[in-house]
């Protein structure tokens, strides 16, 4: 029984990381209307920014987290200005290919600067919750608890921002109908910069929270971003609750799959799940209402 609960805790951790990455991706989808393949590179950039500030400059973990979010938000805004805003009138295929180009560039840049080897970001509070362990026999390292708590806080904050503030509503409006939003005076450039900044920051926070339990390397974003794609397809592209639910589904599928089926199949699980679900329901689990 406690093994079962342990898998739930592990699934929750993984799911939180995936959901944060997928949230940024789904927000940007509302602006670009294409899957942003370079989003995985933002995840990696965030992790390396933290590695430099915490590992090499010796800053506090939380300072590194903030710095990583800031740097990654800037990088995301820069990519919007230099690449995506210029391709706004091109066919979607060209945006996708440009996104792939960005992904290759960031990955190569990081590899050239830091090498292909793995790096470590130290956890701020190494150790596990002794009280919990004594009471229930469950192991919950503090870093995993931080991931879950951080994800929940960010999700609630994002939800409040999107639904309760005017600035947040402009993002939602732009995603619903670009022309309509422009007609009522919403500035497309501002909204799309803001959206890219938020998505970059979310990816960076996910990466930095995840880094202490999962080493930092140039290719670290690849599988995570692919899973984030699976998640936003499952949850419906552009849907915020869908991204959270999808993230949890994949997180649980992986932790239970690794435990009850085989660790070899852990990484394949998400993709196989997508294939199975889309074979049965091509519209995804939570189809967006027709516009």
């Amino acid at each position: 029984m406690s093994l079962f609960v342990q898998q739930i805790l592990n699934g929750l951790t993984l799911g939180s990381v995936y959901a944060l990455v997928a949230l940024g991706l789904t927000l940007v989808y509302g602006i670009l209307h294409i899957p942003n393949f370079s989003h995985g590179a933002l995840f990696t950039v965030g992790a390396y920014a933290a590695y430099v500030t915490a590992g090499q400059l010796g800053a506090n973990y939380w300072v590194a987290l903030g710095a990583a979010a800031l740097v990654t938000a800037l990088v995301a805004m820069l990519s919007e200005r230099l690449v995506f805003s210029r391709l706004r009138d091109s066919p979607p295929l060209h945006d996708m290919i440009a996104a792939i180009g960005l992904l290759l560039f960031f990955e190569a840049l990081i590899q050239a600067k830091f090498g292909a080897e793995f790096h470590r970001v130290a956890a701020p509070y190494p150790g596990i919750w002794q009280g919990l362990r004594q009471a229930t026999g469950l192991v919950l390292p503090i870093q995993r608890a931080l991931i879950i708590a951080g994800a929940v806080i960010l999700m609630v904050a994002l939800h409040l921002f999107l639904t309760r503030t005017v600035t947040g509503s402009t993002i939602v409006a732009m995603a619903q109908n670009r022309e309509g939003a422009s007609l009522v005076g919403i500035d497309l450039t501002r909204v799309s910069l803001l959206t890219f900044a938020i998505s970059g920051a979310l990816a960076a926070v996910a990466a930095v929270l995840f880094a202490p339990i999962n080493l930092v390397s140039p290719g670290m974003g690849n599988l995570v971003i692919l899973k984030a794609f699976v998640i936003i397809i499952l949850g419906g592209m552009g849907s915020v609750p869908g991204a959270i639910a999808g993230g949890m589904i994949i997180g649980f599928a992986e932790s239970f799959g690794a435990f009850y089926i085989s660790t070899d199949l852990k990484d394949i699980m998400a993709f196989a799940l997508l294939v199975v679900i889309l074979s049965v329901r091509p519209q995804g689990l939570f189809p967006a209402p027709a516009r």
């Binding site: 690449v83 210029r86 091109s90 440009a98 792939i100 180009g101 560039f105 190569a108 840049l109």
Partner: peptide, 15 residues
């Protein structure tokens, strides 16, 4: 560094 050139090349091409 090949991909460092290749990625931006792709972007410039579609632009």
């Amino acid at each position: 560094y090949r991909l460092l050139v290749f990625g931006p090349l792709l972007i410039l091409l579609v632009m």
